[in-house]
Design a binder for these strands. Structure first.
Length: 873
RNA sequence: GGGCGAUUAGCUCAGUUGGUUAGAGCACUUCGUUUACACCGAAGGGGUCUGAGGUUCGAAUCCUUAAUCGCCCACCA
C-alpha cells in the first residue's frame, strides 16, 4: 500500500501530474468509430496574449465537460490553438519598433511581416503554456494557429467561393475609420462612450437674401465637407426655402437646401448640415439626394487640402480654430454644453472617423437566414437561453460585414488587379503572369479566419476533397462551445453561418456563455484600475485546483462573478478537507491491515451505510442533472456540501465510533468508506483534476501509468436511494443536534459527560433510538442515556423536539425558563397561523387535499410540542 | 430611444411548476486543541425577500408600476 503523505504538497503534485498528462499525450484523440465522440474547439486566445482570470473560468468549464465525457466513455477531442489577432498584434509590434526608432513604412511590408512573425515566435504561445498549468485536457497534437498554412488555405477557399457566389463585393461605402491603426473596422469592433462636448449654432447665409439658416453641429470642422443643409419637409419655419441655396461660410461655396423627413424638427434649429463623407446618416441622405461627397480628412484624421488654412491640423485643433474664425466672422450664434455618444475603436482606443472608402464586404442576408432557422428549431441551444433573443435581434437586422483591413498582419485578400486594364482576378493562386498584376494590399478581418475555426482546425485545407477528410467527418459538428457573451456577434453568430454554408451543418450543438469576471466590488477587471489578479500568482498561492473550483463555485450561469483573490480560500479549504478525509481513512486502513485482530465478524451495511448509499446515489443523480443542464456552480455546490457535511461531519464521525465498537468489522467498515470516497473523488475529478489524480493513485497500488480521467464515472444505483433510511437518519441527527444544543445553551461543556433522559414521541423515534442509542451516546459525550416513559420530578433542563423530548437533570435556571416561554410564544403564533388557514372556507375548499392534510399534521405536531413545553414552565 | 438582467441576512449568493416557521458560504458570538483536518469541530445570533398597487384561499415566487444598479442594441446633428 502506498504511503500516506501528511500534507498535501500542492505545487509538487500539480507539477507532477501536469507533466505526466502532457508527456504521455494521454489526451490525444484518435478517430474511434466504436465510440461516440465529444469534440470542442477552444476559443483561440490572442497568440501574444497572456492568461487572465476570465480565461480560467472559460477553460475550466470546457475542461469539466471534456473530463466528464471522457469518464463516460466518449472519445473526447479538445482542440487548442491561437488567433493571430490582426490589429492587436500589429499594434504591439509597431510600438516595439517605435522604441527602436523604426517606422513600419520605412522597412516595408515584407520586412514588417517578417518582424511580426519573429515577435510571434518570441512572445507567442505563452498563453498556451499557462493553459497547460491550468491542467486543460486538450489534444496538443492538434494545436492550430489562424495564420498557419492550413488555416490560411481555408480562408482563401472561402473568400474565393463567396466571391464567385457574388456574396463578396467591393464598394465605396462609409466605414468606421481608425486613424491610429489606419484601417477600416466593422461595426462590431467599435464602442460608444458618453462625452461632454459643445453644440455649436452656426448661421449659413441664404443666397440672394438677407436671411440666414442656422444649423446646430458638434463638429464644425467638418463643414468643409458640407454639400447641403437639410430640413424637415413638414417644418413650417422653412417652407419658404424650397429650391433655395445657402452659402457655406469660410468656404464661400453654394450648397443646396434639401428636404428630408430624417431631420428632427425638435433638435437644435431643425436644420442639419449634411457631410456625406464623414457621417453615417449624412452619407445615406447624400445618396438619396444625389449630393456630392467631399473628403476633407487624411488617413490619420488631419484636414486635407479641402480644409483651407486649417490643412494639416488634427480634428480637435481644427475644431477650436474653426470655431474661433466663425466667431470672428460673425457666423457663430452660440454654443451649448452637450452630452452625446462618440465612437471609439475597441482595440486601439482611437476616436473613430467615419470615412468614405473602397472596402470589401460580405453580403450577410443570405447567410443569416439558415443560421436563424437552426436556432429557431432548437438545433443550437444557448445557455443562458436569453441570448437567443439577442441573437435573433442582431441576425434579423444584420448588416453587411466590412472584411477588409488596411493592415499588413493577416490574410492578404486573394484578389489581383490587372495593371493596365484594372481587371479583377480572384483565385487561390496568383495569376500566372503575375508581373502584370498587383495584389490587393488589404488583409482580411481577423474574424474572417475565426469564423471557420470549428471547420478549419480539423484539416479543412482542401474544400473540394472534404468528403475524404476523416477528421472533419468524425469530429464535426462539435458538441459544445464555451465563450464570453461579448463575442456572440463577432464570433458565435458568424461561425454558425459559416458552418451552415460550408458544412451544411451547425458548428456546435450547445453554446455556454460564461460569466464575466469582475472584482470584489463589481468593477470590470482593467489594467488601469490594477484590479485584475494574475491567475498564475493565485495558482501559486492556493493551487490550481483551488482556483478552478472557486471560479466555478462562484459563477452562476448568466450573472457576473465577483471575484477576489481571498475567495480562493473556498477552493483551497475544500481541497484540503477532501485530502484529509482520505488521509484519515487510509491511515486507519494501514493500521487495520497490519494487525490480525480484525477478523471476519462483519457488520454488514448498517444504518449509516444504507443512509450513505442512498445519499451518494441521490448526489450522483444531482451531479448528472447539474452537468447536463449546464448548472456548473450547482454541481460544485452540491459536492461541496455533500463531502463536507454528509461525508465528513457525519459519516466519518460515526465511522470512528463504529470501528471502536466493532473492531472485528473494521476492515469492512473502512473499505466501504473508501469505496464511497473513491467514487466521490471521481465525481470531483472534472473540476479539480490534480488532487483527485493524486488521491486516485494513492488509493490503490498498481495504477502507475494510468489516469483517473480514464476511469469510469460512477453509475447511479437507483435501488439504493431509500427515503426511509434517509428519514431515520434525519431523526437520528435531530436528537444528536438537540442534545448538543441543550448542553451548549446551558454552558455544559461538550467535554463534560452528562446524563440524558429521552422520551420518544412516536414509533419511528422509538425504533431509531433503540437501534442507534450507542451512537447518540458517543456523539454527544454522555455519561448515561436512558429512554423513559415519564419524567420524575422537575429539576431538568429540557428540550422538546419533533420526535423526542430530552431532559438533563440539572438545577433549572431563569434563562432556560425564558427560552421555554419564547418557544411557546412562537409555537402559539405558528398554530394560530395554521388555524387561520384551516378556518378559511376558501382554503379548505380550494387547496389540494394533501396540503390540508399536511397542515393538520403540522398543527397536531405543534400542539403536542406546545403541551409538553407548557408542562415545563 | 429600444431590449434584457438584477435587487432576498453585514457581504456574496441559492430558493424548480405560487403552498417549507425563507436557506448556504463568508463574517460575527460562545465553546472546544478528544489521535484526518484550526485551511478544523460543536452550538448560536441575524433577513419578511427594494417601494407601491393587484391577482389568489395562499406571493420572495405571477401581473402592473416606480426606484436603483448593471449589460446589450441603436447613434438625433
Amino acid at each position: 500500500m502506498a504511503e500516506v503523505p501528511n500534507k498535501y504538497e500542492i505545487k509538487e503534485v500539480e507539477q507532477k501530474w501536469q507533466s505526466f498528462w502532457e508527456d504521455n499525450e494521454i489526451y490525444k484523440s484518435k478517430i474511434n468509430k466504436n465510440k461516440k465522440k465529444y469534440s470542442i474547439v477552444i476559443p483561440p486566445p490572442n497568440v501574444t496574449g497572456i492568461l487572465h482570470i476570465g480565461h480560467i473560468l472559460n477553460n475550466t468549464i470546457q475542461d469539466i465537460y471534456c473530463r466528464w465525457k471522457r469518464m463516460n466513455g466518449f472519445e473526447v477531442c479538445w482542440v487548442p490553438g491561437t488567433d493571430h489577432a490582426g490589429i492587436s498584434t500589429q499594434l504591439m509590434v509597431e510600438k516595439d519598433l517605435a522604441t527602436q526608432g523604426i517606422k513600419k513604412e520605412e522597412i516595408g511590408r515584407e520586412e514588417f511581416v517578417k518582424k511580426v512573425w519573429e515577435w510571434k515566435e518570441k512572445h507567442g504561445g505563452i498563453i498556451l503554456k499557462q493553459l497547460k498549468k491550468l491542467g486543460v485536457s486538450v489534444d496538443w497534437s492538434k494545436e492550430r494557429f489562424t495564420l498557419d498554412e492550413g488555416l490560411s488555405r481555408a480562408v482563401k477557399e472561402v473568400f474565393v467561393d463567396l466571391y464567385r457566389k457574388g456574396l463578396i463585393y467591393k464598394g465605396k461605402r462609409i466605414i468606421n475609420w481608425d486613424p491610429i491603426t489606419k484601417t477600416a473596422l466593422s461595426d462590431d469592433e467599435i464602442e460608444f462612450k458618453e462625452l461632454k462636448d459643445k453644440l455649436y449654432y452656426v448661421k449659413y447665409p441664404i443666397l440672394d437674401s438677407d436671411e440666414y439658416l442656422t444649423i446646430a453641429t458638434t463638429r464644425p470642422e467638418t463643414m468643409f465637407g458640407d454639400t447641403a443643409v437639410a430640413v424637415n419637409p413638414l417644418d413650417n419655419r422653412y417652407n419658404h426655402l424650397t429650391n433655395k441655396t445657402v452659402i457655406l461660410p469660410l468656404v464661400n461655396k453654394n450648397i443646396p437646401i434639401v428636404f428630408d423627413s430624417y431631420v428632427d424638427m425638435d433638435f437644435g434649429t431643425g436644420a442639419l448640415k449634411i457631410t456625406p463623407s464623414h457621417d453615417m446618416n449624412d452619407f445615406e441622405i447624400g445618396k438619396k439626394h444625389n449630393l456630392p461627397q467631399v473628403n476633407i480628412l487624411t488617413k490619420d484624421a488631419k484636414l486635407n487640402e479641402n480644409g483651407l488654412e486649417f490643412q494639416g491640423m488634427g480634428v480637435n485643433e481644427a475644431r477650436k480654430k474653426v470655431v474661433r474664425k466663425l466667431k470672428e466672422e460673425g457666423y457663430l450664434i452660440k454654443e451649448d454644453e452637450y452630452i452625446h455618444n462618440v465612437s471609439f475603436a475597441q482595440k486601439s482606443g482611437a476616436t473613430i472617423e467615419p470615412m468614405v472608402s473602397d472596402q470589401w464586404f460580405v453580403s450577410m442576408k443570405k447567410l443569416a437566414e439558415p443560421a436563424i432557422k437552426v436556432v429557431k428549431e432548437g438545433k443550437i441551444k444557448f445557455y443562458p437561453d436569453r441570448y437567443t433573443k439577442v441573437y435573433f435581434h442582431w441576425m434579423d437586422n444584420i448588416r453587411d460585414w466590412c472584411i477588409s483591413r488596411q493592415l499588413w498582419w493577416g490574410h492578404q485578400i486573394p484578389i489581383w488587379y490587372k495593371k493596365d486594364t484594372g481587371e479583377i482576378y480572384c483565385d487561390l493562386k496568383p495569376p500566372s503572369d503575375i508581373e502584370n498584376w498587383i495584389q490587393e494590399p488589404d488583409v482580411l478581418d481577423t474574424w474572417f479566419s475565426s469564423w471557420l475555426w470549428p471547420i478549419s482546425v480539423f484539416g479543412w485545407e482542401n474544400k473540394p476533397n472534404e468528403d475524404k477528410n476523416e477528421q472533419l467527418n468524425y469530429y464535426y459538428p462539435t458538441d459544445f462551445l464555451a465563450t464570453a457573451s461579448d463575442i456572440i456577434f463577432l464570433w458565435v453568430a458568424r461561425m454558425i453561418m459559416a458552418g451552415l454554408e460550408y458544412r451544411k451543418d451547425i458548428p456546435f450543438k450547445e453554446v455556454y456563455f460564461n460569466s464575466i469576471v469582475r472584482d470584489g466590488k463589481g468593477r470590470k477587471m482593467s489594467k488601469t484600475l490594477g484590479n485584475s489578479p494574475d491567475p498564475l500568482v493565485v495558482m501559486d498561492k492556493y493551487g490550481t485546483d483551488a482556483l478552478r473550483f472557486t471560479m466555478v463555485y462562484l459563477a452562476p450561469l448568466g450573472n457576473d462573478v465577483l471575484f477576489d483573490i481571498d475567495k480562493t480560500e473556498i477552493g483551497r479549504n475544500f481541497v484540503t478537507k477532501l485530502w484529509n478525509a482520505g488521509r484519515f481513512l487510509l491511515m486507519n486502513k494501514a493500521k487495520i491491515y497490519e494487525s490480525d485482530e480484525y477478523g471476519d465478524d462483519v457488520l454488514k451495511d448498517d444504518f449509516t451505510d444504507k443512509w450513505m448509499d442512498s445519499r451518494f446515489n441521490s448526489e450522483l443523480e444531482e451531479v448528472e442533472k447539474c452537468l447536463s443542464e449546464y448548472k456548473l456552480n450547482d454541481y460544485t455546490k452540491a459536492l461541496y456540501n455533500f463531502v463536507w457535511s454528509d461525508f465528513c461531519d457525519w459519516y466519518i464521525e460515526i465511522l470512528k465510533i463504529k470501528i471502536d465498537k466493532y473492531p472485528k468489522s473494521a476492515k469492512y467498515i473502512i473499505d466501504k468508506a473508501l469505496k464511497i470516497y473513491e467514487d466521490i473523488v471521481k465525481l470531483l475529478h472534472p473540476v479539480i483534476p490534480f488532487v483527485t489524480e493524486e488521491i486516485w493513485h494513492i488509493l490503490e497500488e498498481g495504477r502507475d501509468g494510468k489516469s483517473v480521467s480514464f476511469s469510469e464515472f460512477p453509475e447511479i444505483e437507483k435501488d439504493k436511494i431509500n427515503s426511509e433510511s434517509e428519514k431515520k437518519f434525519e431523526i437520528f441527527q435531530e436528537i444528536v443536534s438537540g442534545i448538543r444544543n441543550l448542553k451548549a445553551e446551558n454552558d455544559i461543556p461538550y467535554s463534560e459527560k452528562c446524563k440524558v433522559y429521552a422520551i420518544c414521541s412516536n414509533d419511528i423515534a422509538e425504533k431509531t433510538f433503540d437501534e442507534y442509542n450507542d451512537y447518540i451516546f458517543s456523539l454527544c459525550n454522555l455519561s448515561t442515556l436512558e429512554k423513559i416513559k415519564k419524567l420524575d420530578g422537575d429539576k431538568y433542563l429540557s428540550k422538546v423536539l419533533a420526535d423526542f423530548e430530552i431532559h438533563i437533570p440539572f438545577e433549572v435556571n431563569e434563562k432556560q425558563i425564558e427560552k421555554y416561554k419564547k418557544e411557546i410564544e412562537n409555537l402559539e403564533k405558528y398554530i394560530a397561523n395554521i388555524d387561520k388557514k384551516l378556518s378559511n372556507q376558501n382554503f379548505v375548499e380550494k387547496a389540494p387535499k394533501e396540503l390540508i392534510e399536511s397542515e393538520r399534521a403540522k398543527r397536531e405536531e405543534a400542539m403536542g410540542k406546545l403541551k409538553k413545553l407548557k408542562k415545563l414552565v
